[in-house]
Design a protein around this nucleic acid. Structure first.
Lengths: 209, 209
DNA sequence: TAGTAATTGTGGACATTTTCACAATGCTGG
DNA sequence: CCAGCATTGTGAAAATGTCCACAATTACTA
C-alpha cells in the first residue's frame, strides 16, 4: 500500500492543518500560503509544504493553497468524507461527558453505542443513549460495523475490555486509561490519559518545595 | 539550565515509564530490566536505557533497575514530589467530568480552582467546587499560586481565555479546545482535542463508502 | 573462588525528520 | 505583454532520534 510510507508524525499534523483551514473557511478566506498556515498552527512553512507534497501538489505557485480545495483533499486523505460510527466503552464521568459532547458529530464521528459493566447503568439511558452490557460488546461492534472505540474505563479492566474490542474487530482505539494497551499491530491506539500529559508538563516547571 | 537539552520526546516517555513502574510496584516487583519495562510500554530496551541515561545511571548491571528507587528518581525529574495546584477553566460537560475525576489527586494534582463565564454557573458548586467568575482568573491564579491550567472552553473563547491565563502567570496548559493556542514561548501547551486524535486514527482505516 | 549468565550505559552507525535554498511557475499592475 | 513579486515543490544538507553491539559490571551457582 502506498500509505505505508507516510510517517506517522506527518499524519498527526494533518488534522491540525484541517482545523486551521476550517477556521479560515469560516472567515471567508479563499486562499492561504504555507507561511500563513504555518503561523496559525506553529509549524514551519517548509514543513507544511513537505507534508502536503506526500500526497500531491495542492498549492499554486504565486498564490498558495485554495482553502476549500485543500480541505476537501485532506478530508479524502484522512477518510473524513464519511461519518464514522464510534463506541464509547465505559460510561463513568468522562464517558458521560463525551456522550454529551456535541463536537464529535460536527466533525465526522457519531457515537452509535455506549456500554459499561455496571448493572445499575446497563439498560438506562444517558444523554439520549441506551447503555448496553459490555459483555455483548464484540457482537454489537460487528452488528453496527464499528471500527473505532473510545476507551474510558478504569485501568484495572482496560486490557480485558480491549481484548473484547479486538475480538469484535475494532481497528482504532482512543485510550483514556492510564496504561499501555496490548493490541495486535493491525490495531491503532492513541493514548490520551490527562494525568500523563500533565506529568509531562511539570518537567518544564520549577518545583516549589 | 541543564534540562534545556533533554529532547521533548524523551520527556514525554518518562511519565509512561513511571506508570508502568507503579504497576510493577503494586505487584510487589522489586527489580525490572529495561527489556521487560520496554515490553510493557512498547518501547525498545535500548531506548529506555538511553532515555534514563540523560539523567544518570539508575540501573545495575546484571539485575536491572530497582523499581522503588527508579520511581523516586523519575518523580524528582518530573517534579512530581509535590502536589501541583491546577485550575480548570470551563465547567461544561468535560470540565465537570474532570472535576469529578479522582485520578488527578491520586497522581500529584489537585484542582484548587474552577471557573467559567456562564452567569448561571458562577457561584454555584459543582462536585464540591465553587465556580468562580473567569473575569477574576488572573487574580485567582496569583492568589492560589497556580502554574497549570486545564482548558475546557469552546474554541470560540479559548484564545481570549488563554491570554488571561498568561497574564495571570500560567506556565503550562492542557488544551482540550480544537485550536492551536498562541502563547509566549515560556508557556508549555499540550493539545488533547479528542476529535483531532480520532481524525488521525481514521487515516489508517479503510473508508467504507 | 571461578565460571557463566544477565544486564547496564554508551559510542557510533543508521534512520528519520526538519530545514534550507532555489528553479519553476503563476499572479499583478501598468 | 512584460517586469517584478510571491509562492510552491523538492533535492540536498543538517539536525535529531533510534538502534546496535559490546565492554564493564554484577548476580548466580556450584
Amino acid at each position: 500500500m502506498e500509505k505505508a510510507k507516510i510517517p506517522d508524525i506527518v499524519v498527526e499534523r494533518l488534522p491540525v492543518y484541517l482545523q486551521a483551514l476550517n477556521h479560515l473557511l469560516r472567515e471567508g478566506r479563499g486562499v492561504v500560503s504555507s507561511a500563513e498556515l504555518g503561523r496559525m498552527v506553529d509549524v514551519s512553512a517548509a514543513q507544511i509544504r513537505k507534508d502536503l507534497s506526500y500526497f500531491g501538489g495542492f498549492g499554486k505557485q504565486g498564490s498558495g493553497y485554495h482553502v476549500i480545495s485543500l480541505i476537501e483533499n485532506l478530508r479524502v486523505i484522512l477518510h473524513l468524507n464519511q461519518i464514522w460510527p464510534v463506541v464509547i466503552v465505559g460510561v463513568g464521568n468522562l464517558g458521560q461527558a463525551l456522550l454529551r459532547y456535541q463536537g464529535f458529530a460536527r466533525r465526522g464521528f457519531e457515537i452509535v453505542l455506549a456500554c459499561d459493566n455496571n448493572p445499575d447503568l446497563i439498560g438506562s439511558t444517558q444523554s439520549g443513549m441506551q447503555i448496553n452490557d459490555v459483555r455483548n460488546l464484540a457482537d454489537d461492534l460487528k452488528r453496527l460495523n464499528i471500527q473505532i472505540a473510545v476507551l474510558t474505563v478504569p485501568a484495572g479492566c482496560a486490557q480485558q475490555v480491549t481484548d473484547q474490542l479486538v475480538s469484535g474487530g475494532i481497528r482504532a482505539i482512543l485510550n483514556y486509561a492510564p496504561l499501555v494497551l496490548k493490541v495486535p499491530e493491525s490495531v491503532h491506539v492513541i493514548n490520551i490519559d490527562p494525568v500523563v500529559k500533565l506529568q509531562t508538563l511539570t518537567f518544564y516547571l520549577e518545583a516549589e518545595d
